[in-house]
Amino acid sequence: MASKAVTALAGLLASREDKILAAWLSTLAGATADGRISRTEIETQARDFLRALRESMSGGDTSSTGSARLRDMLSSISRSRALLGFSPSETATFVFSLKLPLFEEIRAAHGSDGEALARDTWTLTELLDQLGLHTIEVFQKSREEIIQRQQDEISELSTPVVKLWNGILALPLIGTLDSARTQVVMENLLQSIVDNGAEIAIIDITGVPTVDTLVAQHLLKTVAAARLMGADCIVSGIRPQIAQTMVHLGVELNVVSKASLADAFALALTRIGRTVVPIRSGGSGQPRSTGAYPGALT
């Protein structure tokens, strides 16, 4: 970046800082409208940024990408905006909206000197564009980190125990199972068995991507504990590839298992002496004796 322009801009920033700040803040006012960020916070950020810009220019920093301090400052602003749910353009507007007030000052300062006007405007545009891009890049990276963290959390999701029928509970497990959370999920199940006086608990692992020895151990412990409390477990949703893998691992669950949650529910109903029948259909007046779930009868 041309050093002549930097000197000129540094002078401008030094002598007109207050006026530039006021003009910039008025264009930034829209950003505070919905209350996600306070007016004082934006003011502090704008004032600090303007001061850092002046200092880096009067210090003779001629790099077109801005000083490390400016970039760090924007990085932290960007990250906090990402957390607050701002969009990338809302975030980048912070830097880009400084252009207009500065351009106006440049024009006022140079009057009819077209060459100086073009030179300073170009230099400033280049710098602010680079800083704006930096802002967006950091913003993007922060969003990715947030998404990654949310994904991790979802994959560790704790799962509710659902009551399917009097005496029948189901625990549909989703996601990875090897965290402390598994412990919580399993304890929830045992507590629900007690609370409901349940006889049968169906543990559905359709949503579990990997069953390794640790997961198997968790399942075994839960089945054993449930048994001690008088409930039998049925494991459902073991997919074919998982079944094969478990055989190679040498893991044996020693528990009744069913291909699907529906099959397991049907089995559970027969165990407690219930069956599902179709509701009376027009005219016949008699419920049919065959179960809607043939599996429930066998």
Binding site: P209, D212, P240, T245, H248, L249
Partner: peptide
């Protein structure tokens, strides 16, 4: 099936 096998081994 092979994916599941190698993933499980890697997990161990």
């Amino acid at each position: 099936v092979d994916q599941t096998k190698i993933i499980t081994a890697a997990s161990e």
